[in-house]
Amino acid sequence: MVAVTDDKLVMRDLSVYYGGFQALSSIDLSIPAGAATAVIGGSGAGKSSLLRSLCRMNELWDDVRTEGQVLLDGQDIYSPGVDVTEVRRRVGLIARHPYPFPKSIFDNVAYGPRVHGIRHRHELDEIVKRSLKQAGLWNEVKGRLQDSALSLSPGQKASLCIARALAVQPEVLLIDDPAYNLDPVSVAKIEDVILELKQQYTLVLATNSMQQAGRVSDYIAFLSEGFLVEFGPTSDVFARPKDRRTEDYITGRFS
């Protein structure tokens, strides 16, 4: 059983609209600190919208409208005067299908710290080494940090993007579909990294894989058509789903 100390993120009556389309409807959900929460649901259920709204990345779209509150350690990240870049530093997002910048492996990982003002080479060296180790990539790339990141394999690129996100030392890490377009070996490796990371970070991951959600998460939130249907500990939701729609989804019965 996971020792939950507090709720890191709290959504209150959160709704997201893209123009006239409502992607999320009045979500009330608390993300426990120091645990991994998997957001599951079919395509178009609102998983990615939910993740993006937790770090104000939805605002990249011109026609998006967000209503309700998202509290990070009790402070509403949508309230006026909140520094959006600081929110995104504290709540890191690894979007679906991330891609390394066309820079060296070192510069990719050092990118975030540099934009946040870290200049000293020694400090950057330490951050890069630590982040690559956390992402399980250090041993594979330590001898070629100045090589182009584009020369890495797809699985290594995905790990590098995790290292890049870890380098800014976020408090919460949002990972959107970590298995997308990766081979099973790379997926297994990424899952091992996620299991390690959840010891130190609050993790929220959106996934289409029930097996993956079962393997790595402590809690599950099931979304359907923009509504939160069920939330609870992973073992409970899988063993005794309270809602029929959740049961149908996790057992693969779709009407």
Binding site: L93, A95, F101, Y111, G112, V115
Partner: peptide
């Protein structure tokens, strides 16, 4: 678009994103 998105997600400002990622690319 992934470069713009990933840079902003790391907490970079729009200017930093343009200057450090988009223009070099």
């Amino acid at each position: 678009g992934s470069f713009r998105r990933d840079s902003l997600a790391l907490g970079a400002s729009r200017w930093q994103t343009a200057w450090r990622v988009l223009i070099p690319y």
